[in-house]
Design a protein around this nucleic acid. Structure first.
Lengths: 232, 232
DNA sequence: ACTGGCTCACTGGACTAGCCTCTTAGAGAG
DNA sequence: CTCTCTAAGAGGCTAGTCCAGTGAGCCAGT
């Protein structure tokens, strides 16, 4: 993921060398038609070819390992993981990070389920967190703000209330992409108020432990939010 | 993710130092009650405390950055990302990677959606790949095998047929955990045949472009597969 | 002919020392 | 009081060195 301009929360930092290396190695894998199980060139060799030190290359390899693209074996070398698809998918995501429809698709799938689970599993503390998020957003809006922070808090609270670590992790995975959608969507005139209203609907369904209603309300909300997005 | 013993396909490698460091730093973050935005100790400092070189620590920091736990800023330091939850979630996943119910939950959410999308978007080539997977599995079973490979192929084909890179990436993310479930489940007597039968149902729904039917069939399939799993 | 053990070249793992760039707080000039 | 500039300290990266697995090939012993 590139450094996104998260409403100024993150500074633009010069891209690190290892990030470029990851790109280059990914490109190399593709161009060389390497298949799962194949070996990457030796570190010393690769470092020289790419014009970097071994230490830096090692960082890039760690990144690729964490991403699940390769598996580095002592004494043997870096072997491609069985799923080369991951590499191309990641690459694809980087390139056109604006595949909004797909992101919305993934988001509604996950958040719909999360809302349903939250309705069933929410504790009183979860409910309190959700209400708090609503208050924050309402406060932001009445201050003339877009309510982006309250919006994020709300979705976080729902995710937490679902008590499903695995799904939560998947949400975290696409959270970055969603952030872009969020801030832009809330920039539409009248949108923050609409968004807050649909949040309230979701919250009420969860309060009433209505799983189906919560899921439907969440789906409607996401549709509303992403709708105008696509018309840009 | 620890090195899983994937049917001997992966050798046991000595744990790399940076992996241990990631764990230690994660633990430190928790124990020190660091909140999002807080700074980690300086690299030179941290390296000394952990008894490793800066180069190695740098690798651990790269890993943490890729995992989305921290954001390293030149001249400032490593700041905790906005979602410290990710850290605990990842840690939790490592510890009890056997939270089967949650994995099944995530899997059915994703694969249900994928099956529905596949029914709508599948091309003839996708259909061919799905049929091929069925053939492979049938062949394996008649050879007395458990059909694990055909099973995996089938689910990959469905994922591909959905034509949703983002959802596909999320599936890849939990694929490793699912693998464990898969092989164990197919070890049950009579299970491969049942599994193949429900695969056929899913395939037919997709062939007939019946999104709802495909999703339902997939959900039923996953329930079947994970059912006995939980009784162990 | 086969088996076991040995060696050696090659691969990654890790460390050290050093220098560069960037950020920022604070001293000093206005 | 404000602005500017500097120096301390942060991370970025390199080069060189040594350690530790891996595996092919040789060579003896059976």
């Amino acid at each position: 993921m590139e450094k996104t301009a998260r409403a100024g929360l993150e500074r633009v930092t010069r891209p690190r060398l290892y990030e470029q290396l990851v790109e280059q190695i990914l490109a190399y894998i593709e161009s060389a038609q390497l298949k799962p199980g194949d070996l990457l060139p030796a570190e010393r060799d690769l470092a020289e070819r790419l014009g970097v030190s071994r230490a830096t290359l090692a960082q890039a390899l760690v990144a690729l390992e964490v991403l699940g693209v390769i598996d580095v074996q002592h004494g043997t070398g870096a072997v491609l993981a069985r799923r080369p698809s991951v590499a191309s998918v990641i690459k694809g995501l980087r390139e056109h990070r604006s595949r909004l429809p797909e992101i919305v698709e993934a988001r509604s799938t996950l958040e719909g389920k999360l809302a349903a689970l939250a309705a069933v599993r929410r504790t009183d503390a979860d409910l309190k967190a959700i209400d708090n998020a609503l208050d924050v957003m309402a406060g932001e809006i009445s201050d003339g703000d877009r309510g982006a922070q309250g919006d994020e808090l709300f979705h976080q609270a729902i995710t937490a209330a679902a008590h499903s670590p695995v799904l939560a992790q998947l949400m975290a995975f696409i959270a970055e992409m969603i952030l872009e959608t969020r801030t832009e969507s809330l920039g539409q005139p009248g949108r923050p108020e609409q968004s807050l209203a649909s949040h309230r609907k979701i919250a009420e369904a969860i309060r009433g432990q209505d799983a189906d209603g919560a899921a439907k309300a969440m789906l409607a909300h996401i549709e509303l939010v992403s709708d105008v997005e696509l018309l840009r």
